[in-house]
Design a protein around this nucleic acid. Structure first.
Lengths: 168, 168
DNA sequence: CACTACAGTTGTACCAAGCAAGCTTTTTGT
DNA sequence: ACAAAAAGCTTGCTTGGTACAACTGTAGTG
């Protein structure tokens, strides 16, 4: 495959490929840590949907795409939230099939509490970090996830986002 | 609970808290991306154990601690690997209860293939990244995970401080 | 008025992880 | 040396989260 052609070997102790491999390693480690953290939190995964919904109420399908999950998964999680009174289904006047999902007051409170706890934990973890490092981590991580989510590892479709594919 | 008033002796106007919150957001996003990525990979989670085992053959308990997982989970995953002929149980001469887990040749090959695929994917994702940014991401991420895993924000046991056993 | 497309929900199956209990072997105490 | 306690690992059971596939009901179209 393409060896590191364009990149000049600077002071890196090894080739850039090694850096990539190391990143993969840290990613796996990170994934495990995340799974473990989420598991030890009592909060069901459904609660994570409160965050995007609080930012912008939207329909189930849009939400599913926003979090890159299957519509069925989101549907069940929404059902949990509705059952707990954290989210309300407001029938969309423009489309009878759809419902706009809006967090209730309790939903906002719950989300705020979750965020507070998260923030406290993170603040403790980052207690001795220089602010600049934190900022850089956020920046790099954010960019990485964006690039990570964007492409399909196999079968990349540059621009096929067109809505109309019926033609039948 | 204690609000942020008790925690921050001095609260900066807008910066650090926001950065922390944003980090939490990115973390959640990353968690979803990881789950999705792992799900779309045909490889079972058990294969991830090949990496630490290839670096250093070790026993099941040590492996479980290394990946911060329950011994039972590791036991099953190891069973899968043994069944597929990727790992061999070598009876420990010093301890009859234990087995040292050693990747077979096929195990090494499988792991190499996995790593290659991972690296290719990551290389594609990072195609347009400056090498320095990648290096910094690895560095910051690695440090962050370490700090994230180390402390026990809730349920600190003062008594268990005798041995440096960060278990559980 | 039929007929296709679309939004969401429900049925089913799978995988991953953990707790608790059990079995075997080692270590320890008397 | 023997019995009891501890250690290392495995297995039974339960839970939680996800996706695929099939189904229900509404919107748009000729």
């Amino acid at each position: 495959m393409a060896d590191s052609s364009a990149i000049a070997p600077e002071q890196a102790p090894a080739t850039p490929d090694d850096t990539v491999t190391e990143l993969g390693r840290q990613l796996a480690r990170f994934g495990r840590a995340m799974v473990r953290y989420k598991a030890q939190q009592a909060a069901s995964a459904a609660y994570g949907l409160l965050f995007p919904l609080a930012e912008r109420p939207q329909r189930a399908g849009a939400l599913a795409e926003a979090v890159h999950a299957d519509p069925s998964t989101v549907s069940r999680q929404i059902a949990q939230l509705v059952e707990r009174g954290l989210v309300e289904r407001q029938p969309d006047p423009a489309d009878g099939r759809a419902c706009v999902l809006v967090p209730t007051d309790a939903g906002h409170e719950t989300m705020a509490a979750l965020r507070r706890r998260r923030d406290e934990h993170l603040a403790a973890v980052l207690e001795h970090w220089p602010a600049d490092d934190v900022h850089q981590l956020v920046d790099l991580l954010s960019r990485f996830i964006t690039d990570f989510e964007a492409p399909r590892p196999s079968g990349v479709r540059p621009e096929e986002t067109e809505t109309s594919t019926p033609s039948r």
